[in-house]
Simulated assay, not measured.
Amino acid sequence: MGLIRVEQLYKVYKVKNSRKGLLGGVADLFAPQWVDKEAVNCIDFTINQGESVGYIGPNGSGKSTTIKMLTGILYPTSGRVLVNHVEPYHNRLKNASMIGAVFGQRSQLWWDLAIRESFELFRHIYRIPYPMFKKNLDKMVELLGLNEFYSTPVRQLSLGQRMRAEIACAFFHEPLIVYLDEPTIGLDVVAKEQVRLFLREINKEKQTTIILTTHDMDDIQQVCERLILIDHGQLIFDSPMEHFVNQYGKERMLLLQFEHHVDNLQVDHGVLVENQNNQAKILFNKDSISATKLIQKMTECYPVMDCKIEEPKIEHLMRMVYEERGRNE
């Protein structure tokens, strides 16, 4: 049946249509005109317990509106959402007890309190038994590196430190589902990897369902096993990450390092993208020729010293999906 069920979800906002000029401003004051703006248009999907899902799309695509309906912040115009058999917007307290959330710049920590005191207040609000709280706290302090600022007031934390503390708060009460919006914003490379490792471990160990919205495609690739793409309020792609890469990521880049510069480099079953400074880049389709076969052909004909295969970036693959959709429309 699924932990989360979304059926024909539809959301329309009433947006004020401002008229131009002084007379238009006066008219708007006494007789405003409103137009309907579709934010989410008849979306259907089911998410099972323990899944890690990247829910992504361009700005204004409707992903934030969808998440707000899943968390009970917004009512849908029509359609239905069920989270563990509960309609979030009709039973917000019960829904809130089952979920955790990190929403961008909206903090759930107390500004003037030290992190440890904020965590203690959070324990009482959710009525978390102390043994469970202590066990989870120790794990999060270790995995998220909270020791260095555990006694520091929230107002003195850097953005990256605060985001790590926010993520810890979202998991203390062992929720069924956690919604994460840009969870690695402001983090350096090491801290990002700490967060990604933490999310993978919690997902695997606790079977916590993770729904991640972000513009950092490395987060999606390293944390999520399933990808849902949304554009102009409509669901345009929903599949395991592996299927997405296989469907759109057939092109690979072969990087070759030669003993010396090779003039008039000839390439079969590929496209020569660059050839300079004893290096060459060849774009090829893995369905036309395997990487092993292409490397073998090149080493037989040219003085190759080293080679490397570059996998396609997920940003590039997503761009292909949107471009293909634009051409079809």
Rank of each mutant, 00 (worst) to 15 (best):
K297P: 10
A280Q: 12
I115Y: 01
E148V: 00
L143M: 14
I47T: 01
A114L: 08
Y322R: 03
E259G: 11
I202N: 10
L9H: 01
V189D: 02
Y10E: 09
L187W: 02
L199S: 07
P58E: 03
L265A: 08
Q222I: 14
E166R: 01
A191Y: 06
Q49H: 08
W110R: 01
Y13G: 03
T66G: 08
G233N: 06
F172M: 12
M140Q: 05
I210S: 12
P312F: 03
T299V: 14
E193K: 09
D268M: 07
V81M: 09
S52G: 09
N136A: 02
L265S: 10
P131M: 13
M132C: 06
K281M: 11
K20P: 02
D306G: 06
C224R: 03
K20W: 05
I43F: 06
A101K: 10
E310H: 12
T184C: 04
E310D: 11
Q234T: 03
I230H: 14
K14N: 08
V273K: 14
N17F: 10
G270R: 04
L146D: 01
G100I: 00
I115R: 00
A27F: 06
K281P: 09
G72V: 01
M318R: 06
D306P: 03
V189C: 07
V86P: 11
A165N: 14
N136R: 02
I228L: 14
P240H: 07
P129H: 05
D138I: 01
L137V: 06
Y302H: 05
D181Y: 04
K286G: 00
A39E: 04
V53Y: 12
H316C: 05
A165C: 15
S290W: 02
Q257T: 15
G50L: 09
I167F: 03
V154S: 04
F244H: 04
E117M: 07
I236R: 06
H215I: 08
I185L: 12
W34Y: 15
N41Q: 06
G100M: 05
L254A: 03
Q33P: 07
F133Y: 13
G72D: 02
V267R: 07
G270Q: 05
H173Q: 07
P175N: 05
K250I: 03
E51R: 13
D218H: 10
P131E: 03
Q247C: 10
Q276R: 15
E120D: 02
I228P: 12
G60P: 08
S61Q: 15
I282K: 04
